[in-house]
């Protein structure tokens, strides 16, 4: 029943009519089109590339990429075409310059800091063990409940 209601609702909701994409190019150039499409962000989707999105707007952008490849434009020129319209937001991988460097440097910096902290902790504990600083557990524990359990077990 719920499936029927959902189907009726979906059929009643206006939607963008699916249009066929432009004709594929030869395998080598089509591979370039797909690779470029994977790098470009779909403006109507959430974090999807135009090659991975099923939206009609993404299809329109893929058609444009195909057209630009067919015109003999280089990958840089095609990326520049989309950056000119949507800014660097259009690139799924931000180019390494300016504040974008943070994206590449922060993870490395955090891993290094983590490694440093772990290294210090390990060294500290091994030094303490070697010096015998760790006192042997006394048979009479400071915990009265533990003593009570031991006494019960001895009975």
């Amino acid at each position: 029943m719920s499936v029927l209601v959902l189907a009726l609702l979906l059929s009643a909701t206006p939607h963008a009519p699916q249009q066929a994409g432009s004709a594929l190019l030869d395998p080598t150039r089509e591979a370039r089109v797909q690779a470029l499409g994977k790098m470009l962000r779909c403006p109507m989707c959430q974090g999807l590339s135009i090659a991975d999105s099923g939206s009609s707007a993404a299809r329109a952008q893929m058609d444009r990429v195909r057209e630009l490849v067919a015109e003999g434009k280089t990958d840089d020129e095609i990326r520049a075409y989309f950056v000119a319209r949507y800014g660097e937001w259009a690139l799924l991988e931000p180019p390494a310059h300016g504040v974008n460097w943070l994206v590449f440097l922060l993870p490395v910096a955090l891993v290094l800091v983590g490694a440093l902290v772990i290294g210090r902790l390990v060294r500290h504990s091994s030094v303490a063990q070697a010096a015998g600083a760790q006192p042997a557990p006394s048979p009479a524990s400071a915990d009265p409940y533990l003593d009570a359990v031991r006494a019960e077990l001895k009975k």
């Binding site: 403006p43 950056v83 000119a84 319209r85 949507y86 800014g87 660097e88 937001w89 504040v99 943070l102 440097l105 922060l106 910096a109 955090l110 800091v113 902290v117």
Partner: peptide, 26 residues
């Protein structure tokens, strides 16, 4: 740790306040 925190703060200060869904108009 202070350097890493500083970098994080800088990133938050520069990137917060922007709507990530707003597509720039070039």
């Amino acid at each position: 740790v202070a350097a890493a925190m500083g970098l994080l703060l800088f990133a938050f200060a520069t990137l917060f306040g922007k709507d990530p869904h707003q597509v720039p108009f070039g």
